[in-house]
C-alpha cells in the first residue's frame, strides 16, 4: 500500500475541516473493508485517510416511530442484529446477512457499502426499496438526499470534498410490511452478487404495494417501477402475473457480462429471483 497520513478526528466538525482542507487528496473511512483493499490495489490513492470511527455522532442504530437511523459507523452485524431491523426492515437484514462473511460484517458498515457505490453492493437494493435518504454534513451545512439521487454510477456518488455521510434514514413503512433480499453468487458466502433482488411488500392506505430493487445488473441499483405498478393492489399474484412482472423487471435492468456472470444468465436470474422474492414477501405477510 502506498503511504498516507491517518487522521482520527473526534468530532464531525474536526472531520469536515480536515476533509475540506485536503479536498480530493483525502478520503473518509468507516469500516475500511472496501477502502483499504482499493488502496492496496491502488484504485484510489488518498494522501490522507480520515477515520470516522471515533466520532460519537456516527455510531449506532436507532429506531423511532418515524423510522430507522443507521449511523455511518454502524456495522452490518450491528444492523442485522437490531430487533427493529428484523421486525420492520427484513430486506435490509437479509442484505446485511448476505454480505461477505461474519468477520467482514463485523467491520463493514451499511453506510460504507452505500458510499462505495459499487453496482453489486448488497445493502443498496434494500435501501432503495425502503426509500432511504442519505444525510450528509459538510462545509455548507447539512443536506438530505434520496439514495437513488445519491448514487450516480459505479463508485460515483453525489458528494463533494469535505462532506461526510452521517447516517441513512429509513422511514417506517406505512402499514404492515414484509421484505426480503435474495442474492445469487457463484457460491453461498463471501462473494459478490451476480444478481441481488430486494423486495418489500406493504399493506398501506392504497392496498398492497410492492417495491422491487436490483443490484449488480446495472451501473447503479435500480427500482423496477413498471413491475411494481403491475403488482399494485394484488395480494396473491398468480403465475401469469409473476411472469409478466419478471419480464418487466428484466426490462428495468441492463446487466453486463464479466467474469462473474454473463448477460443472459443475469437477466434470467432477475426474472427468477423476482418471482421468488415476491413469493417470499407474500408468504411472510400471510404468516403474520
Amino acid at each position: 500500500m502506498l503511504a498516507f497520513e491517518l487522521e482520527r478526528p473526534r468530532s464531525l466538525q474536526e472531520a469536515i475541516s480536515i476533509l475540506e482542507k485536503f479536498g480530493n487528496r483525502a478520503m473518509p473511512k468507516a469500516g475500511g473493508t472496501d477502502l483499504l483493499m482499493w488502496m492496496k490495489d491502488r484504485l484510489v490513492t488518498p494522501e490522507v485517510v480520515v477515520d470516522l470511527s471515533l466520532i460519537p455522532d456516527l455510531a449506532g442504530v436507532n429506531f423511532s416511530k418515524d423510522g430507522l437511523r443507521i449511523g455511518a459507523m454502524a456495522t452490518c452485524t450491528e444492523v442485522l442484529e437490531s430487533a427493529a431491523v428484523e421486525d420492520h426492515f427484513p430486506a435490509l437484514r437479509d442484505a446485511c446477512l448476505s454480505h461477505s462473511d461474519w468477520l467482514i460484517r463485523n467491520r463493514a458498515t451499511v453506510v460504507g457499502n452505500v458510499c462505495s457505490a459499487v453496482p453489486s453492493g448488497d445493502v443498496m437494493p434494500a435501501l432503495y426499496c425502503y426509500d432511504a435518504t442519505i444525510r450528509i454534513v459538510g462545509p455548507r451545512g447539512e443536506r438530505s438526499i434520496p439514495i437513488n439521487k445519491f448514487i450516480l454510477g459505479p463508485r460515483k456518488k453525489d458528494m463533494i470534498a469535505g462532506e461526510i455521510v452521517t447516517h441513512v434514514f429509513l422511514p417506517l413503512p406505512e402499514g404492515k410490511s414484509s421484505g426480503c433480499y435474495l442474492k445469487l453468487g457463484r457460491r453461498n458466502a463471501l462473494d459478490l452478487a451476480q444478481v441481488g433482488v430486494a423486495c418489500v411488500a406493504i399493506d398501506g392506505k392504497n392496498g398492497r404495494e410492492y417495491r422491487l430493487a436490483y443490484g449488480a445488473v446495472a451501473p447503479t441499483p435500480v427500482r423496477a417501477l413498471e413491475a411494481e405498478k403491475a403488482l399494485q393492489g394484488i395480494k396473491a399474484p398468480d403465475d401469469a402475473l409473476l411472469e409478466k412482472v419478471s419480464a418487466l423487471a428484466k426490462e428495468a435492468v441492463k446487466p453486463i457480462a464479466d467474469v462473474r456472470a454473463g448477460v443472459e444468465y443475469r437477466l434470467a436470474m432477475v426474472g427468477e429471483l423476482t418471482k421468488r422474492a415476491i413469493d417470499t414477501c407474500v408468504e411472510r405477510l400471510k404468516e403474520e
Binding site: 457463484r186 453461498n188 458466502a189 459478490l192 467474469v259 462473474r260
Partner: peptide, 16 residues
Amino acid sequence: LLTPDFTDYKIATTMD
C-alpha cells in the same frame, strides 16, 4: 488474468 485472487477465484466455503 481475470481471476488472480480469491475475489474471483472461488473455492468452496463452509456454506458450500
